[in-house]
């Protein structure tokens, strides 16, 4: 069998090597591979079905038995855009991008102070960050609503930005820290010996090493903020609503029509699916707070 790289999609240049005596039968591996493919397609199929349904007419979408062959139509996407998806899309984009930048701005220095030049009580600080993720959001929503309402920031995009920043910051700190820890400390010492200032060392030595990590951390923050629903549905309405709330509002106003609903859901989900595909190798590292590489 060929040696596969971790991505698995590309085989290394070495020619397929025979497994030799170990391979007694060919049917076992073939069966397992087939099973894996069936399961993979099975898990993916609901998503594919959503995208397919988005291109159907309402009649094809709600038919029994389900329609598999149909003439694609953009009718549903037109309906979705006519229903005013624009502002929601812009809000999602704004809340996601700005909160992610803020998270990185706060998390990178903090992670540095918890890894390369650790402060005292580093462990306590780290556990404080992770413990905030364990507190159920629902327990905080009441005071947040009352306070936001009192200061007149209800239905304001900046409210979401602040909350999304706080929501993602602990994950980002842990994740960035695990990337900083991968930087060999000798490298830093060598640069300092050579008389380079700390700022210059960070910029020219450390930054290039951790930049893939920054990218991955950013993508994971993007996924979480884009998908967030609880704060959005409780704290926003027409002005600052994001894509998940658009879906809810769309269902309420249009009714449960499968095809147009699938079109709206496809538009809401697609950006994050693509971001996630790009970041899939780092997904686990982010979600496990850097515990698993």
């Amino acid at each position: 069998m060929a040696i596969t790289t971790e991505r698995g999609s590309t085989t290394t240049s070495s020619a397929p090597v025979d497994d030799g005596p170990r391979r007694t039968s060919r049917t076992g591996p073939v069966l397992l591979t087939t099973l894996t493919w069936i399961l993979g397609i099975g898990f993916f199929f609901p998503v594919l079905w959503m995208v397919l349904t988005a291109f159907k007419t309402e009649g094809d979408a709600q038919s029994s038995p389900p329609t598999f062959v149909f003439t694609p139509t953009f009718e549903q996407f037109r309906t979705v855009f006519d229903a005013g998806i624009g502002p929601y899309l812009a809000n999602s984009l704004g809340a996601t991008v700005i909160s992610t930048l803020l998270v990185l701005l706060l998390a990178i220095p903090a992670a540095f102070a918890l890894s390369m030049r650790p402060v005292e009580k580093t462990q306590d600080v780290l556990f404080f960050f992770i413990s905030t993720k364990m507190l159920p959001v629902v327990a905080a929503i009441v005071p947040i609503y009352v306070v936001v309402n009192d200061i007149g920031l209800l239905d304001n995009i900046w409210t979401l930005i602040v909350l999304y920043t706080a929501m993602n910051l602990p994950i980002a700190v842990w994740m960035m820290r695990s990337f900083f820890l991968e930087v060999p400390s000798e490298l830093l010492e060598a640069a300092t010996m050579d008389g380079a200032s700390l700022a210059r060392t960070l910029r020219e030595v450390v930054l290039p090493i951790i930049s893939p990590g920054i990218f991955a951390t950013g993508l994971i923050c993007v996924i979480f903020s884009w998908n967030e629903f609880f704060f959005a549905v409780n704290l926003t309405s027409a002005n600052a609503g994001t894509m998940p709330t658009f879906l809810v509002q769309f269902v309420t106003s249009q009714g449960l029509y499968f095809a147009q609903l699938s079109a709206a859901a496809t538009l809401a989900a697609l950006p994050v699916i693509i971001a996630g595909w790009v970041a899939q190798n780092k997904l686990v590292q982010g979600l496990s707070f850097g515990a698993v590489k």
């Binding site: 999609s9 591996p29 397992l32 993979g40 397609i41 079905w49 894509m243 879906l247 994050v272 899939q280």
Partner: peptide, 27 residues
């Protein structure tokens, strides 16, 4: 295991996790 299209299958399998939960629930 090593098999043809392993990266593709993994990408397919990851997708449900990425889809916006509200969209997934509607689906």
């Amino acid at each position: 295991r090593h098999f043809i299209g392993r990266g593709i299958v993994r990408t397919l399998l990851v997708t449900p996790f990425l889809i916006t939960p509200v969209a997934a629930a509607l689906l």
